[in-house]
């Protein structure tokens, strides 16, 4: 990792250079380079185990890279994590929350720790809870929240300080359609106001619908990146993705036992 030098101001919200992370013998991230334009809705897609979450964790100070540099809004993340954390908000997949706080108290706590004025925290918390459909649950303990509600309160905490960049790891996973729509509304509003969203997913339809930039990650490397129209080149993103990562097995000549009559006979035989 090079020493923390500031990038000159430019139109990139996130810059990732030569990022590497190993877990024992397994190379999870191998020389990843990403440029995220300001104001973009940037999707990081890839199959399970491709290194998406690991990359996002390294971008958000949750995992120290073995090698490489990350700048967020011009600040080197691992040389000055404190300054970087004021520039971004993050919603990791499995971050523990304060279970014995109510949703409203949780947001207040985050706001106070981020140095926001009390009245500002109250105003913003109220708005976020309302937009995310959590107004009625604001005084309920986080321990009693469903998976979708936990994602939404985590998102509210991530954007409470109006960050420049928002990192989200699989934000729509295990979330019902109504919650997904409210999360999507907040993200679009955030992006429309000049914020940058970087999120990981393996749901191609959602990425295609929301993102204007995309990076396809496979085996810890970026195999394609750029404006989504350019990456798609007139095709469906899913087709481009499958071509890029491969691994599709022809199942037409296998699994013959799934044939209805055969399956029935086998079950009867058992």
């Amino acid at each position: 990792m090079t020493d923390g030098r500031e990038l000159p101001g430019d139109d990139r919200a996130v810059v990732v250079r030569h990022l590497v992370k190993r877990f024992g013998a397994k190379v999870a991230v191998a020389d990843v380079n990403i440029d995220v334009p300001r104001g973009s809705f940037y999707g990081v897609v890839g199959p399970n185990g491709a290194g998406k979450s690991t990359t996002l964790k390294m971008c958000t100070c949750l995992l120290e890279p073995d090698h490489g540099d990350i700048w967020i809004d011009g600040h080197h993340v691992w040389s000055d994590p404190r300054a970087a954390k004021t520039r971004f908000g993050a919603l990791p997949d499995d971050l523990p929350l304060f279970e014995r706080l109510t949703g409203r108290e949780f947001l207040e706590f985050v706001g106070v720790f981020r140095g926001l004025a009390s009245d500002l925290v109250l105003d913003r918390s109220g708005e976020l809870l309302e937009v995310l459909g959590l107004s009625d649950a604001g005084n309920v303990l986080v321990a009693d929240y469903s998976t979708g509600m936990r994602k939404k309160i985590g998102l509210a905490a991530a954007i409470l300080h109006a960050p420049r960049v928002l990192f989200l790891d699989e934000p729509f996973e295990s979330v019902d359609p109504v919650s997904a729509r409210s999360i999507q509304t907040v993200l679009e509003r955030f992006c429309g106001a000049g914020g940058t969203v970087v999120w990981s997913s393996h749901v191609m339809d959602t990425v295609e619908r929301l993102c204007d930039q995309v990076a396809i990650v496979h085996d810890g490397r970026v195999v394609a990146a750029g404006p989504i129209e350019q990456v798609r080149a007139g095709r469906r993103l899913e087709d481009v993705f499958i071509d890029a990562v491969g691994g599709l097995t022809d199942a037409s000549s296998t699994l013959s036992w799934l044939n209805r009559s055969d399956a029935g006979e086998a079950a009867d035989g058992a």
């Binding site: 300054a83 523990p96 304060f98 279970e99 720790f113 981020r114």
Partner: peptide, 15 residues
């Protein structure tokens, strides 16, 4: 004690 679990505080800009 939730307050001593560092993972609940990791995203906050605390020295």
């Amino acid at each position: 004690d939730e307050t001593v679990d560092p993972m609940r505080l990791v995203l906050l800009p605390l020295g």
